[in-house]
Design a protein around this nucleic acid. Sequence first.
DNA 1: CTGATACATTGATGACCGTCAATGAAGCAG
DNA 2: CTGCTTCATTGACGGTCATCAATGTATCAG
Lengths: 126, 126
Amino acid sequence: MKQLRVLEQPCCAPGAPPLAKGSAQALADRFKALSDPARVSIVNLIAGRSQLCTCQLTAPLGLSQPTVSHHLRVLREAGLIEVALKRGTMTFYRLVPEAMEQLAFAIGGGPAPAGVLVTRERAAAW
Amino acid sequence: MKQLRVLEQPCCAPGAPPLAKGSAQALADRFKALSDPARVSIVNLIAGRSQLCTCQLTAPLGLSQPTVSHHLRVLREAGLIEVALKRGTMTFYRLVPEAMEQLAFAIGGGPAPAGVLVTRERAAAW
DNA sequence: CTGATACATTGATGACCGTCAATGAAGCAG
DNA sequence: CTGCTTCATTGACGGTCATCAATGTATCAG
């Protein structure tokens, strides 16, 4: 996974300071991970259920299991999701809230509204 | 330009409600517009200078003029930038702050920190 | 050990994307 | 009108991506 340098300032909102070349690439890589509707839906589904396994995604997405696995890999390599737990033959994934927050910050989003974000610990409670 | 339905809730942050299929596509389209480092840099450059013309972008990006024009078109069709002004043979572009804010909101970003965002009117003052 | 389940990986295929040279369009200077 | 500048569009080429069938890997039940 490629590390995204923590930005001091939003880079893509009005009044932004110049952006280093490497940071542009790192940001583009993460946006690319969200540039497919299937992956946006995966993030949304995981966000709503704290965590879920691959087998719970094929039906709502209408995609084959290898394709879902592929999208999960892209999201994982972008640092947006991670493996929460392996139980038996099942693999559960969860969000990496910090990564999403950094992305929101980059395009000018401030701290999330209270009550919307839950802690990673609560998400892991399952 | 495809209209992005205004989301009632963040869709890609912990605790998000289910996302409509069309919304996933609309979001993915906008993220795709930011999935190239050249386009991230363009947004960053425009954000920092209020508005810029095409000829001011080729040098810092190290890309040919047709390529820059192509990227500007992608960003414009995604609704992230718009033509601010045509003066003579030059075309000036500016951000569409609402579009960036909606994107930030979708992934869990709240209102922008005070002092970072400037109004569209000030940006247009040039 | 055998069969079944859940997932990841590989390979192949069709579609899409980024890039630039060449060309077109539109405005300005003289 | 002529030439110059700025920008958009077209066409072409090489590379990347999304998708699925087939296969491999690992775990569990019996």
